[in-house]
Simulated assay, not measured.
Amino acid sequence: MRFAFDKMHGLGNDFVVIDARGRDVPITAARARAIADRQTGIGCDQLILLESADGADLRMRIFNADGGEVEQCGNALRCVAQLTGARRIDTAGGLVKAGADEAGITIDMGAPRFGWEDIPLAYALDTASLPVGWDGLEQGAAVNVGNPHIVFFVPRLEAIDIERLGPTIEHDPLFPERVNVNIAEVTGPASLTLRVWERGAGLTRACGTGACATAVAAIRRGLVQWPVTVSLPGGDLRVDWAPGESIRMTGPAAHVFSGEAELEAFG
């Protein structure tokens, strides 16, 4: 069978979006990996499958490049909101609201969660400052923003080898569902520079949920004030959050091209 798709990106974090509303487009882990492959497939960080939903405009399913299905993706939410006009999007991480204005696409990500069992961790620890470390990365903050994140603040971002440490931390037994790894440098009273090792996808040019988790962790520690500008290799996101409230993330989304392919070509 042939399927139509749209290639999109949010600050360089790129997606293949398949609208499966009204038709069955069966996606397995192996098929998602094949579509995401940049040499033999279409190529993307994540495959996004859109389905019909009750109580929302649509349901968004997210498959990382390794084929694993995950709960949430902030950059993909902005892309889907722009592509479809959806304003209520159901995800495995919860119902998300979207809006658009001259500043870009704004996503209401809901309230962050900080309980050790919400991350989840393998055992009870203080998620505001984890008493564990990896090669000098210490006092990480754990935050769930629809998916699990650990955030480290360092004096010089370029001094950290995230490509070496990222997979080690992602797969540490402390994180039974693995974890997204964020390393940030505070660059001003309301600004951060961030790099993210994304669970199941590796080093990415941008991570919307990572920007949200990092901004929340920085605000909790009193390192920055809100709204926070989070600078990633692909560009900037604005994150607004006050304790007890929902996170609001604003940034761009871009449509690259539309195409068609044979599903059987991917297994």
Results as ranks from 00 to 15, higher is better:
residue 215 A to L: 09
residue 101 D to N: 15
residue 39 Q to V: 00
residue 253 A to D: 12
residue 254 A to K: 13
residue 172 D to Q: 12
residue 176 P to F: 05
residue 127 T to D: 00
residue 20 A to W: 00
residue 10 G to P: 07
residue 180 N to I: 13
residue 93 G to L: 11
residue 217 A to L: 07
residue 159 A to Q: 14
residue 234 G to T: 02
residue 102 E to S: 14
residue 85 G to T: 07
residue 252 P to L: 01
residue 151 V to F: 08
residue 179 V to D: 08
residue 105 I to L: 13
residue 228 V to Y: 08
residue 254 A to T: 15
residue 1 M to I: 07
residue 27 I to W: 08
residue 86 A to Y: 13
residue 101 D to S: 09
residue 202 G to F: 04
residue 82 Q to V: 08
residue 150 I to V: 15
residue 39 Q to F: 13
residue 63 F to E: 09
residue 59 R to K: 14
residue 194 L to V: 01
residue 65 A to K: 10
residue 100 A to K: 14
residue 59 R to A: 11
residue 48 I to D: 10
residue 70 V to G: 10
residue 171 H to D: 13
residue 125 L to N: 06
residue 267 G to P: 06
residue 87 R to M: 10
residue 143 V to D: 02
residue 105 I to Q: 15
residue 35 I to G: 05
residue 83 L to Y: 11
residue 15 F to Q: 12
residue 51 E to P: 09
residue 161 D to Y: 11
residue 192 L to N: 10
residue 213 A to H: 04
residue 57 D to A: 06
residue 228 V to L: 05
residue 17 V to N: 08
residue 96 V to L: 14
residue 20 A to D: 02
residue 190 A to L: 02
residue 55 G to N: 01
residue 131 P to R: 00
residue 13 N to F: 06
residue 74 G to L: 01
residue 109 M to Q: 11
residue 202 G to C: 02
residue 245 E to W: 00
residue 238 R to Q: 11
residue 2 R to N: 14
residue 243 P to H: 00
residue 219 I to Y: 13
residue 36 A to Y: 08
residue 99 G to S: 15
residue 145 V to C: 05
residue 41 G to F: 01
residue 138 E to A: 04
residue 187 T to I: 14
residue 251 G to A: 03
residue 46 Q to M: 07
residue 200 G to C: 12
residue 214 T to C: 04
residue 50 L to H: 11
residue 92 A to I: 06
residue 113 R to S: 13
residue 89 I to M: 05
residue 160 I to H: 11
residue 262 E to L: 14
residue 41 G to I: 00
residue 216 V to G: 09
residue 127 T to P: 03
residue 16 V to I: 15
residue 249 M to K: 10
residue 22 G to H: 03
residue 95 L to G: 06
residue 47 L to T: 13
residue 197 W to D: 03
residue 105 I to Y: 11
residue 243 P to D: 00
residue 61 R to D: 12
residue 49 L to F: 10
residue 50 L to N: 09
residue 240 D to N: 05
residue 226 W to P: 15
residue 266 F to Q: 03
residue 142 A to M: 03
residue 79 C to W: 12
residue 188 G to N: 05
residue 101 D to A: 06
residue 57 D to T: 12
residue 190 A to P: 07
residue 75 N to Y: 04
residue 81 A to F: 11
residue 56 A to T: 06
residue 34 A to M: 02
residue 195 R to S: 03
residue 210 G to F: 01
residue 182 N to A: 01
residue 260 E to R: 09
residue 202 G to P: 08
residue 222 G to M: 02
residue 69 E to L: 12
residue 2 R to I: 08
residue 245 E to Y: 00
residue 149 H to I: 02
residue 120 P to G: 00
residue 66 D to G: 03
residue 88 R to E: 11
residue 9 H to K: 07
residue 27 I to V: 13
residue 230 V to E: 07
residue 166 G to N: 10
residue 6 D to V: 13
residue 97 K to Q: 12
residue 200 G to T: 12
residue 55 G to Q: 00
residue 253 A to V: 11
residue 256 V to W: 05
residue 209 T to A: 04
residue 58 L to R: 12
